[in-house]
Structure formats: C-alpha cells, structure tokens
Computed example of a mutant assay.
Amino acid sequence: MNMDHSHENRLLLETVQAFMKAELTPHEAEVDRLGEVPLELGRQIERRAIAAGLYAANMPENVGGGGLSLETKVLMEREYGKTSHALHSWIGRPTELLLACEGDQIERYLLPCVRAEKRELFALTEPEAGSDVMGMKSNARRDGADWILNGSKHFISGPVMPDFAIVFAATGIDETKRGPRKRVTAFFVDVGMTGFTISEGTHCVSYRGYKTFQLHFDNVRLGPGQVLGEEGCGLEMSGKWLTYGRIFVGASCCGKAERLLGLAAEWAASRKQFGQAIGKFQGTGFKLADMATELRAADLLVEDAVRRANAGTLTDADISMVKLYCSEMVNRVADNTVQIYGGMGLMEELPVQRLWRDSRLERIWDGTSEIQRHIISRAILRPLGA
C-alpha cells in the first residue's frame, strides 16, 4: 500500500509473507485441482498460524487475540488477497460480532473461536434474500422464554464444517417512517441441534476449496442464552460486520491485483514477438500503465476509508466506493493480465487463470456492484429530497 509502514507493521507484513510463502502458496495449485483443502492440511495451517501468532489476530488482546488496529488488519488482509482464499481462511479471523457475547456465551462461543477450538458461520443470505435482506423468510417466534426458528440459508461460506452458526432471522415487524420493517435478531445455533440440518452447498469456480453451506431450520428450539446481542438489533450488528468486511474485501482485491500486475509485467518483459519484448508495444505497455494506476487509486481509497473510520466519519457510501472500485479494478487487472499472456493465460499450468476466476467473485459477494452503486447514488440524492 502507499502509506508509510511503522516498524511494527513491517514486522507483521514480513511474518505474514513468510507464512504464506512456506504454508500457503505451495498448495494453491493442488487445492484448486482438488476443489478442497484436505482436512489434514487445513489443520496444519491452523496449528502453524497459532504458533506464528496470526490466528485470531483481528480480535482484541483482552480475549486472547492479536489486538491489531484497523490499519494493520487491512494490511494483513491485503497480503492474504495474493493467495488462495480457501487456504488463508484456515488462519482464523473470528467474526467480531462475537465480541457482543455476554455471560455464558463468552466461554461457549467467543473464547473457543479465538483459541481455534470452534469455528463459526455468519448466516445471513437466503435463496430469496441475498441483497434484499428485508426479504428474508427465516423467522423466529417466541414460545415462553424460548424461540422457535424456521427457515433456510444458503451461500454461507467457510473453510470447514462449523461448530455453530450466527443466524439472522425476523422476529417481528417495526413501524418506521418508511413503513413497516422487519425486526431482525441474531441467534447462536449449534450444529447437531434438533431440527437444524447443514450440508455442503454448490461448488463455485471462484475460490475452489472454499466451501459454501446450506442451512435448514425446522422448529429449532433456542433458549434465551442463544440470542446474540439484543432482540431486534441483528441488522445493526450485521451492518457493522459488513462495513469492515467490505473494506477488507477492497484490501484483498488490491493484494490480488498487485500479484497479477507482477505476473503481467514479468511476462511482458520476457515474452518476445517480432524481435522485441511485448511490453514495448503500446497495446501491452499501456495496459500495464493503466493497471498500475488503477491499483494505486484503489489502495488510496482503502487508506482513505481507514482514516475516515479512525476519525469516526466513515459513511455507508464511503464503504461502498471501496467495495465497488476495488472489486471492479481487480477484474480489469485480471482480464488484462490474461490478454497480455494470450493463450497461456488460460492454461491450467499457470496461476493466471485461477486468479482470473477468483477475481470474478469479488463483484458479487459482500454486496454486488449494483448494490454498492445504489448505496452511493442514494447518499447523493437523499439530501436533495429524491
């Protein structure tokens, strides 16, 4: 990135880079071919990440995490973006929603995730409610002190079968200035509970080896201790997670674009046609110039978001600009890299085609490009009464 790194940040980056070189990058092609991370390999990454001090580095020190700042977490996610998502996801970064745990929930859910004893899923998306969160069908109704959960979720992603899911469900209707609005609550649902079934979902051509899960709830009885946070505060909680998640996606896209640009530049300098390196032809050289410029702009957007977040002035539109620009930037960089490589860019023996496939998902998950444009345009028009 463009910001000057402190001594501590440089040490962290060196640790992450050394870990990736030794533990992740050598397995990329195999994982892509197999379509999964072998369980033994995943557990090995997990153990060695703990030993290296990288596991749960995003969580505060007072719960046993690394206590990294937002800036440092962004730098770390940027580096992870250069390698397989399926592999680096084994270096657990538990969702910070778990910090809302209270009482017995701390020992039951929060601390086991920080210690790599348990894995969680963030379960929001449904077959008929992806970007339209208010369209969710999953619901929970009161039954005495308990809740009865029904519904389903899909495209819920994670590296391995989880121990529990943080499930968002409608628990009522609130009247607002814009009309009726579903009240959404977050629940802990443990794998193995009566009525809760979970299975691996469809396989994606992007990030092969990173699993998606389908969750179904048939009259699942949940006690009052399985409500995360307060009843009706689920959307606010998920919004905070998605806020920083989209900044991390932007940073990850920048890391991936940097790797692609490096591959493209090396190929353009070494591949010769008509007696000279292809990078000397404007058709190729100008692509490299555009790729480098767009990467710089994307990095600056991420850095600006970090500064705004630290100053307490970050808006939804700011976050959407990061997600929108960075995800579309890495797609352009990936496509140009394939074009520079020509036919070799699509050959399975080289990493370019894998990075190209992986880049495509960035414009979809954590909010599509269309949703980001909607958020940005809404922020422009609402103050004008439109």
Rank of each mutant, 00 (worst) to 15 (best):
Q372Y: 00
A86H: 02
V322A: 05
W147F: 09
G130H: 15
E36G: 00
R47H: 10
T368H: 09
E362I: 03
F196T: 07
Y55S: 09
Y109N: 05
A165K: 01
Q226M: 14
A116Y: 04
C326S: 03
A265V: 15
D290I: 12
N336R: 13
R178A: 14
L54W: 06
G67Y: 09
W267R: 10
R363T: 14
K82I: 00
A289G: 08
G275H: 05
S131D: 13
N150T: 11
P26G: 11
M20T: 09
F155T: 12
S138Q: 06
A116E: 06
Y325P: 01
R363Q: 12
I278M: 01
L97C: 09
M76Y: 13
G172I: 05
D4P: 11
S131W: 14
V302L: 01
L41I: 03
E102I: 10
I148H: 02
P162K: 05
S138M: 14
T176I: 03
G172K: 06
L75M: 06
N219K: 15
R78N: 03
G239T: 11
E348T: 11
E71M: 13
F213Y: 15
K272Y: 10
V191N: 00
F248V: 02
E349Y: 07
E8K: 13
T212W: 11
A22K: 14
K272E: 15
L300E: 12
C253G: 06
G342C: 07
E349A: 09
C254D: 05
H203P: 05
R357K: 14
G179W: 04
D316M: 11
L124K: 07
Y244Q: 00
T194Y: 11
F164L: 01
L346Q: 09
L300T: 10
V31L: 10
S206F: 08
L295A: 04
G312I: 02
A277I: 02
